[in-house]
């Protein structure tokens, strides 16, 4: 989404959007659509739902932009709207806590160097492969940086549940990561043999 945007500051774009000027609304869309779509994909897990969230999120941004108080970064405010929209979508459409995955206490060894080699798309794919509950808590804690207390309030669960779900999410991710790295290594090895 790095198209040639006219040189408008965030403040100018915000003021234009406050006047419901389509030109500035489109500028805001072009500026944040890529990042926010990736947020939606991380929470939704699939494209159709992510696009629904993206559309609802932008409409919320435009209709609530007068409430932005410039106390934090504008991007942070926009991101928070998309995270909340994603959570609303998940509450409506999905069952947050369904799967009982393997015991999180059992350790899985993985190669950190291998993790470094993984592409962003691979990590994204791994996170999307998690069940809704694990994916949500992992995103909120690891990527967005919320505390367990905040997550518990947002999802109306206990802090203990949030911690245990995160541990299980990590376990599954590492397990799948190792599988993926082995798969990639085998591919590379076979490619080298050829």
């Amino acid at each position: 989404m790095s198209t040639q945007l006219p040189t408008y500051s965030d403040q100018q774009i915000i003021e234009g959007c406050m006047k419901s000027d389509r030109k500035f609304q489109e500028l805001l869309y072009k500026k944040f659509a890529g990042k926010m779509y990736s947020v939606c994909l991380r929470y939704a897990g699939e494209q159709n739902s992510a696009q629904d969230i993206l559309q609802d999120g932008f409409v919320k941004v435009y209709t609530n932009i007068c409430k932005f108080r410039s106390e934090g970064s504008f991007e942070g405010w926009v991101r928070r709207i998309f995270v909340n929209t994603s959570l609303e979508f998940i509450r409506k459409k999905a069952n947050l806590y369904v799967a009982q995955e393997p015991d999180a206490n059992s350790m899985v060894n993985y190669d950190e160097n291998g993790l470094q080699k993984l592409m962003k798309e691979d990590i994204m794919e791994l996170i999307q492969s998690l069940s809704t509950g694990y994916r949500t808590i992992f995103n909120l804690y690891v990527v967005e940086g919320f505390s367990h207390k905040e997550i518990a309030e947002m999802l109306n669960i206990s802090e203990g549940t949030s911690k245990s779900q995160l541990a299980r999410a990590r376990y599954i991710l590492k397990e799948r990561l190792e599988t993926k790295m082995n798969y990639n290594t085998n591919i590379n090895f076979n490619a080298a043999e050829l």
Binding site: G34, Y37, L41, E112, K120, I123, M124, I127, V143
Partner: peptide
């Protein structure tokens, strides 16, 4: 590492 990789990750919408 995951946070660093995904925080600013962008995917173009349709």
């Amino acid at each position: 590492h995951i946070k660093t990789e995904l925080r600013d990750y962008e995917v173009d919408p349709p």
